[in-house]
Simulated assay, not measured.
Amino acid sequence: MSIIAIIPARGGSRGLPGKNIRELANKPLIAHSIINAKEARFVDRVYVSTDDREIARISLDYGAEIINRPHELANDTASSESALIHAVDTIAATGVAIDLVVFLQCTSPIRTGKDIDNAIRKLNQENTDSLLSVSPSHRFLWQETDGIAQSINYDYRHRLRRQDMEPQYVENGSIYIFKPWVLKELNNRLGGKIALFPMSEAASWEIDSLLDFEIAESLLKKQVTVNAY
């Protein structure tokens, strides 16, 4: 089985300029995802899709192969799926066989190569077509519609203890795996039979702000256990 990892990383970021190459625990943010992918025993090749020369340079330094993403696929309105389709087509055109794609977002640096291997193993063992990583949730959710508040995932009139609720999960954005046909036919990272890969809350940490960087730095420095939940 030929398994590739793709890490999309565009140069522009409205919320936090230069986010993908900002230092985190003495390494550029994107370096952590490259290292994670290269540590995974089941991943054969690691690609970074980018429109940015500095991201490309850093990614090469950490051992990734580069896919030059067109600028029209790297603006604020371009979807991750459009970048993934371009990357898969570009890789396939070089003659590389692809059985599975591991899609990693560089805003989720606190995963490990072992997490990736375990996710791949689960997809194969359960014979699914795609997989997403999740973190357990025990939150009581509400929504407001036309000024009326409604409980979503529980009945507030018969409140259960958190430990008695059915298991629920939050998509954490750390690991996605899919067979190429899922992306091609459905224009989506998920489809067919889908598997969930639970991860710890620490391993699920996403970076979108300066505060997120500070928390991730603390987690990495303390070497928090981030194996699957």
Rank of each mutant, 00 (worst) to 15 (best):
E126I: 03
I34L: 07
P136G: 03
K27C: 08
S79G: 15
F103G: 00
K193S: 09
K179F: 05
V182N: 12
I120N: 04
L186R: 07
D208E: 14
E206M: 12
L29W: 01
H138T: 06
M199E: 08
G192D: 07
R159W: 02
S133G: 09
V182T: 08
V43S: 11
I116S: 02
N75H: 14
D99W: 03
I4C: 10
A5Y: 00
P17K: 05
N26P: 04
P17S: 09
W205R: 11
P109W: 04
A56L: 09
G113I: 03
T50I: 13
F178K: 04
D44A: 14
G147K: 10
A202F: 00
V224Y: 04
L132F: 07
D89Q: 15
I91N: 12
I194M: 00
L160A: 08
A195V: 06
T94V: 06
M199I: 08
P198F: 01
A119S: 02
L60K: 13
F213Q: 07
F42I: 01
S49M: 15
E206V: 12
N227P: 00
S108A: 09
E201K: 05
D52F: 12
R157W: 01
I177E: 12
V182P: 12
G191E: 03
I66F: 12
A93L: 11
A93E: 14
R159D: 03
A97H: 12
Q163T: 04
V43Y: 08
S137C: 02
L100K: 11
A92N: 10
Q125D: 13
R159G: 02
Y156T: 03
N36E: 03
S133A: 05
V170T: 06
Y62Q: 12
L210K: 13
L84G: 11
N127C: 15
P136S: 01
E201F: 00
I215D: 07
I34S: 09
G63C: 12
V170Y: 04
Q105S: 05
P109L: 03
F140L: 05
T90F: 10
I58N: 07
P109I: 02
R41S: 13
Y156S: 06
L183G: 01
K222P: 00
I6Y: 06
G192H: 03
S174F: 04
S82W: 05
R14T: 12
F197D: 04
I55S: 13
Q125A: 13
A9Q: 01
Y176A: 09
I177D: 13
G173R: 08
I66T: 11
L84Y: 13
A56P: 10
P180Y: 00
A216Y: 03
C106R: 03
S151A: 10
I215E: 14
D76L: 10
G11D: 05
V170D: 02
I55L: 11
S49D: 13
K122F: 03
N227V: 02
Y47E: 10
T50G: 15
S204N: 05
